[in-house]
Amino acid sequence: MNQATDPATFAAGLRRVDAGALDIGYVDAGPPRGPVVVLLHGWPYDIHSFAEVVPLLTAAGRRVLVPFLRGHGATRFRSADTVRNGQPAALAHDTVAFLDALGVDAATLAGFDWGARTADVVAALLPERCAGLVSVSGYLIASQASGRAPLAPAAELSWWYQFYFATDRGRDGYARHRRDFARLIWRTASPRWAFDEATFARSAAALDNPDHVDVVIHNYRWRLGLAPGEPRYDEWEARLAGSPGIGVPAITLEGDANGAPHLDPSAYATRFTGRYEHRTVGGGVGHNLPQEAPRQFADAVLQVGD
Rank of each mutant, 00 (worst) to 15 (best):
M1A: 14
A8L: 11
F10W: 01
A11W: 04
L14I: 14
A19F: 06
G20M: 08
G20R: 08
G25R: 00
G30M: 08
P31Y: 03
R33T: 15
P35D: 09
V38I: 15
D46G: 15
F50R: 01
V53E: 01
G61V: 12
R62G: 01
R63H: 13
L65M: 09
L69N: 12
L69Q: 15
R70G: 11
G71N: 10
T75I: 13
T75N: 11
R76K: 10
F77M: 12
F77K: 05
R78H: 04
S79D: 15
A80F: 05
T82I: 14
T82H: 12
R84I: 14
Q87S: 12
A92S: 14
T108Y: 06
L109M: 10
D113W: 09
A116W: 04
A116S: 15
R117H: 10
T118W: 05
A124H: 04
L126A: 14
A131M: 06
S135F: 05
L140N: 08
A142F: 15
Q144D: 02
P153L: 07
A154W: 09
E156M: 13
F165W: 12
G173V: 08
A175P: 02
R178M: 10
D180M: 07
S190W: 00
S190P: 05
P191H: 10
S203T: 10
A204R: 00
P210C: 12
P210I: 13
H212Q: 14
V216N: 02
N219T: 14
W222E: 09
L224G: 05
A227C: 07
Y233H: 15
Y233E: 06
E235D: 15
W236N: 02
L240H: 00
G242V: 08
G245L: 03
G247C: 04
V248C: 02
I251K: 04
G255F: 05
D256I: 05
A257Y: 01
N258L: 04
A260F: 01
A260P: 02
P261R: 01
H262W: 07
H262M: 07
L263R: 14
L263G: 07
Y268K: 02
A269F: 02
F272A: 07
R275Q: 13
E277L: 12
H278G: 04
H278W: 01
T280S: 12
G283E: 05
G283Q: 06
V285F: 05
G286T: 02
N288C: 14
E292S: 02
P294T: 07
Q296G: 14
Q296T: 09
D299A: 12
V301L: 07
G305W: 00
